[in-house]
């Protein structure tokens, strides 16, 4: 099943099979395009069905409500691109919000808190990456331990919810950026900046290309003399960093830290990445797709809130169905090209 586009030519005058030239649409873009089409189809359907849905503010609000999830999905994309998985992100979001809230309460300055939180997340990611690579233990179980660890640390800090009253944080939370008649929040800007940086790192640096190479074939990457160890550990550091940053955004969004928040958020992040067209086996996908995946998830919620008669559990069912559809598409896709 390897000869996908070997053109049928007469053997007499073709010394070598030639790849088809001209307009070839790279197959790796197809899943992302499917997701974008899905997004606009949903938006269109909503606009027809519900009054007020067609406003651009609907999309902007989805961004506002899900900026932390975009950051989380970006980090998860790096990990999944290498063929790994990170189950700890939801707990790290909760832990970051907890650390921020409690440190602010005990009088730390806002910049110091931000640095401390980002550092904690990155170090946690580094530790998991080291264990995964050097001890050759499955990412699933290592990050499961990371998930337990971060959740446990939340409870060590406090069992109760801690409100955030720091002025820097509250003003950041209440700030809006007007775009004509519409608005977004500073968090959205942060998320978009993270997205752009991630895209640049993935596509324009050696580290980024190595991420794809490791996901394509770790063995090949090793034999090509690439920095496999650094890359594999690096993606968990990035995921840890993104989780911490998402935790800060989440803390700003809710203006509190609470041990029981963000339970299962890792599943939302993984779902967004898969719906965004990234192969769970690694090697193929884009951070932009993951961001669109988050928007699709957000739009489902908008649908349900606009409708009023639909119950909230349809969100989960719809996500599950979308996940299934995309997994099946991926299965077909990998069968055809491998």
């Amino acid at each position: 099943m390897t000869t996908v586009i070997a053109p049928p030519e007469s053997p007499a005058n073709s010394p070598a099979p030639r790849p088809s030239r001209g307009f070839t649409f790279p197959a790796r873009f197809l899943p992302v395009i499917a997701t974008v089409v899905l997004f606009f189809a949903m938006f269109g359907a909503g606009s027809i069905r519900y009054e007020g849905f067609s406003s651009p503010q609907t999309i902007l609000s989805v961004l506002v409500d899900n900026s932390f999830l975009i950051v989380l999905a970006v980090g998860m994309t790096f990990v999944i691109l290498t063929g790994g998985i990170d189950l700890s992100v939801g707990s790290v979001v909760a832990l970051s919000a907890m650390i921020a809230a409690s440190a602010l309460r005990s009088g730390w300055s806002a910049p110091l808190v931000v640095v401390a939180v980002l550092l904690t997340g990155s170090v946690l990611g580094l530790l998991m990456g080291l264990v995964i690579h050097y001890f050759e233990i499955q990412p699933f179980i290592v990050t499961l331990a990371g998930m337990f660890l971060a959740r446990g640390l939340c409870y060590v800090i406090s069992v109760d919810s801690i409100p955030i009253k720091n002025e820097t944080f509250t003003s950041f939370a209440s700030g809006t950026i007007e775009i004509g008649d519409y608005f977004i929040t500073p968090s959205v800007i942060v998320a978009l900046v993270v997205l752009v940086i991630a895209a640049i790192v993935l596509h324009m640096t050696r580290f980024g290309r190595t991420v794809y190479a490791v996901g394509g074939s770790e063995q090949s990457a090793l034999l090509m003399g690439l920095a496999v160890a650094r890359t594999k550990i690096g993606v968990y550091v990035i995921s840890g960093f993104c989780s911490a940053l998402a935790g800060l955004l989440y803390a700003i969004y809710t203006l509190s830290g609470y041990s029981l928040t963000a339970v299962g958020m890792e599943l939302d992040a993984i779902a967004a990445v898969v719906i965004g067209g990234t192969l769970l086996t690694g090697g193929s996908g884009f951070v932009l797709g993951s961001a669109v995946g988050v928007l699709v998830l957000g739009l489902i919620q908008s649908f349900i809130s606009f409708d009023g008669t639909l119950s909230s559990w349809w969100t989960k069912i719809t996500i599950g169905v979308l996940l299934l559809v995309f997994v099946l598409i991926q299965r077909l896709f990998t069968r055809r090209t491998v």
């Binding site: 790796r28 190595t210 794809y212 190479a213 394509g216 074939s217 090509m224 090697g283």
Partner: peptide, 18 residues
């Protein structure tokens, strides 16, 4: 073939020496 089929021909040729 010890290359990465998910990348382009050029990337495979120059991976690590881009």
């Amino acid at each position: 073939v010890n290359l990465c089929t998910n990348l382009t021909v050029a990337e495979n040729m120059l991976l690590g020496r881009e």
